[in-house]
Amino acid sequence: MFPLIEYGGTLADSAVISILICIYVFTQNSRGNASVSAPYAVGTVPPSITYSVPVMEADGIVRRIVHHQVPPKVEYCLTDWGQSLCPALDALLKWAEQRYG
């Protein structure tokens, strides 16, 4: 009936879409990685990140790079497969901007 819901798996989760949009927006304004000093900085509730990022990694959408330093630093970037979602994410952001200004 709805392929994204039936077969989308990871992408059917709204927290995943929020995290992908955050990574996408951050990487558009940087050297290609979304750098955060704590998991909370991605813009969603920590339990969602704790669950969703590993799932996105396993699906090959996101790469997580941990820098062992104090304070902790983690970078997220879209893989080639994840970057193939950029046109859809861009369209979603444009739609939201038109709708909500």
Rank of each mutant, 00 (worst) to 15 (best):
F2T: 15
F2H: 15
E6T: 10
G8A: 07
G8W: 11
G9P: 12
G9F: 03
A12G: 11
D13V: 14
D13H: 07
S14A: 06
I17F: 08
I19W: 03
L20Q: 03
I23C: 11
I23W: 09
Y24I: 04
V25N: 10
V25Q: 14
S30G: 08
S30W: 01
S30C: 02
R31A: 12
N33V: 14
A34Y: 13
A34R: 09
A38E: 05
Y40W: 05
Y40L: 03
V42W: 02
V42L: 13
V42M: 06
V45K: 12
S52D: 04
V53L: 07
V53F: 04
P54W: 03
V55H: 04
E57Q: 15
E57F: 00
A58F: 00
D59Y: 12
G60P: 11
I61Y: 12
V62K: 10
V62Q: 02
R63V: 02
R63C: 00
R63M: 02
I65G: 01
H67Y: 15
H68M: 05
V70W: 10
P72S: 10
V74Y: 07
Y76R: 08
Y76V: 03
Y76S: 01
C77Y: 00
W81A: 08
W81S: 09
C86A: 12
P87A: 01
L89K: 11
L89Y: 08
K94E: 06
K94S: 06
W95Q: 12
A96R: 15
E97R: 15
Q98P: 04
Y100Q: 05
Y100N: 11
